[in-house]
Amino acid sequence: MFKRFFYSEKNEQLVLKEMRTHLELLEQACRCFVDFLKGGDKRFLEEIVEIEREGDIVRRNILSTLYKGAFLPYLRPNIYRFVEIIDETLDLLKDKARLCEFISIPPILLDDTLQIAVLNTEMVRMLIIAFDTFVAGDDLRERVLAVRIYEKRIDDLYHDLFLRITKVSVEDFWQGRGLGDFFSLLVKLSDLVEDAGDVLSLLHLSLS
């Protein structure tokens, strides 16, 4: 009956630790993608798929710990949501990697794509910093704003890219479709990371 009041801290610490691991996996996957774009080495794509699987395990671990009673019930929904968003982001990276296995990015767009990928990685880095701030209990408004700045930049870049994409000629329908999917996934990633940042600040608020 009172167990929760006396030794629950272990569970909470585990949840926070695993959340951090989850984020690190995301960053690692983003880096892999950048490396792939730089050199075109497809081994990086396989690594992304591996990382995504690992992320699934971490996510399940977090959810079961929460279910065991970590954190106050009214905090749990937002934690669930945060974890789900990160998981979705990893999923998205995996899909992107799978797409890259059979499409080739047009050379004139490669530079911008690479830049977006780099910014995505940086954005995830910011999210990790924000998460650490949250764990320390400090104000994370500034951190979340930084995440949003990246999102805005990526959005601008994408807008520009989108105008040029129409000029690219494709060989067949599936190439074109794959390319379209790839670019929409590229920009969706930053949206998701931004959402994760917002949920994080919501979590911070609900504890004050």
């Binding site: 929760r4 801290e9 610490q13 905090l75 209990g137 979590l203 504890l207 004050s208």
Partner: peptide, 14 residues
């Protein structure tokens, strides 16, 4: 006085 989410969680609970 209480900054970390774990500690606050505990404070409200207790």
């Amino acid at each position: 006085g209480i900054r970390s989410p774990i500690a606050r969680n505990r404070v409200f609970l207790v």
